[in-house]
């Protein structure tokens, strides 16, 4: 059976650590790949730049994407993924601190599959991330060819 992975795009080391801790609790931590900015995320998914060796590699089951990212913003990453036939249908979950209505709206307009606000409360955050991980890796059926 092919191992399903999650790509976490997170520039904040502390958030990354907390998210990984939550995924660890549900035994998904080994299936998580972390990149730290928008450009890295695009390189990883398109198999270019430092990830050139991944050109033929399988896509993750889902991408957890922050909006505020260095170099290429989360929304630009999303737009480029949706413009590329290979990643057009790739499930993308926006995981962000923002609770701005316009952010949410723009994300959905750009083709996000889900919009989740990072809860401030640690327990809530852990639960949310764990649920997200389990849902996208175990529950959700990815689109054909993804």
């Amino acid at each position: 059976m092919k191992i399903k992975t999650i790509l976490l795009v997170e520039d904040n080391r502390q958030d990354e650590k907390l998210i990984l801790r939550a995924l660890h609790k549900v035994n998904l931590v080994n299936q998580v790949q972390v990149v730290r900015d928008g450009q890295q995320a695009l390189d990883y998914l398109f198999g270019q730049g430092e990830f050139a060796d991944r050109a033929e590699a399988a896509l993750p089951a889902a991408v957890l994407l922050d909006i505020n990212l260095p170099r290429v913003s989360g929304l630009d990453v999303l737009a480029q993924l949706r413009a590329n036939p290979r990643t057009k249908l790739l499930p993308v979950v926006i995981l962000t601190s923002s609770d701005e209505e316009r952010d949410r709206l723009r994300c959905y307009q750009e083709g996000a599959n889900s919009f989740v606000r990072k809860p401030l409360d640690f327990t809530e955050l852990a639960e949310t991330v764990a649920r997200l991980g389990v849902y996208w890796v175990a529950v959700n059926e990815p689109p054909e060819g993804a």
């Binding site: 904040n12 907390l18 601190s97 923002s98 401030l120 409360d121 640690f122 327990t123 955050l125």
Partner: peptide
């Protein structure tokens, strides 16, 4: 306000998160 919403929350989440952890 946007910066407040994003940038002030992140360290706070870390303080709460690691305390809880």
């Amino acid at each position: 306000a946007y910066a407040v919403s994003h940038d002030l929350r992140a360290p706070l989440r870390a303080m709460m998160g690691f305390s809880d952890a």
